[in-house]
């Protein structure tokens, strides 16, 4: 299937919709389409219902966390150096804002083709984490979107039953985010080094407090 063709077909049929083709440099060659949040449901319905596409099977829904990061690029610019125009290399830094991305992998049971991946991103990782839910389009997204809500904190508008899936309801963190700090409750690796050594030493001093009088070897 030609993704370019699908892209222009959707853009022609969903009014006002612009899609971005995200190239995948890996040998798998599975490129994807990125849609904005406002047209996502319409795009999804079109992908599912269009005669020649019929992506009726939404196999997999994944959340990905992209914290804000800096991408440095080397660019050549012409500049006046000591009065002479020269070509110099400059490092340009672009700060990419953090986002939470959701990827849907679609197949067609009827036409037996696929996969294509459909992506959406939130505006940032704190306040604007809303995305439209595609559960009304593909029921299989129901539990998977709940999982992403639980582990990443993406809020899916229009999901009929958006609760935490895996962690308990009173849990407040989103553990699959890259900056999640897990509870410090494992310790004492006998092959201690680096970070584990630091932790082990810290726990060792706690253990010393718990075993008063039993001064072990350090």
């Amino acid at each position: 299937m030609n993704l370019e063709a699908i892209k222009s077909e959707i853009e022609a049929n969903v009014p006002g919709c612009r899609l971005e083709l995200v190239a995948n440099p890996s040998p798998s060659g599975q490129h994807s389409l990125r849609t904005g949040a406002e047209h996502a449901v319409a795009v999804a319905v079109y992908l599912r219902d269009a005669e020649d596409l019929r992506f009726d099977f939404c196999s997999n829904v994944t959340g990905i966390d992209w914290p804000s990061r800096e991408v440095s690029q080397k660019v050549k610019v012409r500049k006046l150096v000591d009065g002479v125009e020269q070509e110099v290399e400059e490092v340009r830094k672009t700060a990419l804002p953090g986002t939470l991305e959701v990827v849907y992998h679609l197949f067609s049971v009827e036409k037996k083709h696929g996969p294509i991946s459909l992506r959406m991103s939130t505006i940032d990782r704190d306040a604007n984490v809303h995305l439209p839910s595609l559960t009304p389009v593909w029921r299989s997204a129901e539990l998977q979107e709940r999982e992403i809500f639980d582990l990443f904190g993406v809020v899916f508008d229009g999901h009929p039953d958006l609760r935490r899936l895996l962690m308990w309801p009173d849990f407040t963190d989103h553990p699959m985010r890259r900056d999640y700090v897990d509870p410090d409750d494992y310790e004492y690796e006998p092959t201690a080094h680096d970070e584990v050594l630091r932790r082990a030493q810290q726990h060792r001093s706690e253990a010393d407090e718990e075993h008063p009088g039993e001064a072990g070897e350090r």
Binding site: N24, P25, S26, P27, S28, Q30, S59, N60, H105, P115, S117
Partner: peptide
Amino acid sequence: RPKPGEAYGR
């Protein structure tokens, strides 16, 4: 170390 990219295998 695979090159940057992504893949879905099933």
